[in-house]
């Protein structure tokens, strides 16, 4: 009997929770705010679903109800992706060590 592919996805999911658990515990508390903004950015990889939905219509019906929701989701996710990564970048650039010369 074959294993349902769902089980493989579930395995990936469960193992990723454990990876997340250990990786996030090792994040230094002073970077918790950038952690939140970067997790925001990466969770917007949901944009792949939005793109699939947006491109689902054929050439004569680019806009149907389903694809319009897809297009809107693309914009929302894009705000997060660009906003999230850039604001994280901006924050991380501010974390500086003490200058050696006095």
């Amino acid at each position: 009997m074959e294993i349902d592919p769902f089980i493989f996805r579930l395995s990936i999911f469960i193992l990723s929770i454990f990876i997340g658990y250990y990786v996030v515990w090792s994040v230094t508390p002073s970077l918790h705010t950038p952690l939140m903004s970067v997790t925001n950015a990466i969770s917007s990889v949901i944009i792949v679903g939005a793109i699939i939905a947006g491109l689902a219509g054929n050439s004569d019906t680019i806009f149907n109800t389903s694809s319009i929701f897809g297009f809107l989701a693309i914009s929302l996710a894009a705000i997060n992706i660009f906003g999230g990564f850039l604001v994280t970048q901006r924050m991380l650039a501010m974390y500086k060590k003490k200058k050696k010369d006095k």
């Binding site: 997790t39 792949v48 679903g49």
Partner: peptide, 23 residues
């Protein structure tokens, strides 16, 4: 991610989910 059968989305979802829970 499960709906779309997309690994990147499943991994990310799990990471972000546990990250928020730990915080």
């Amino acid at each position: 991610g499960f709906t779309l059968e997309n690994t990147a989305l499943i991994i990310t979802g799990a990471l972000v989910g546990s990250s928020g829970a730990i915080l």
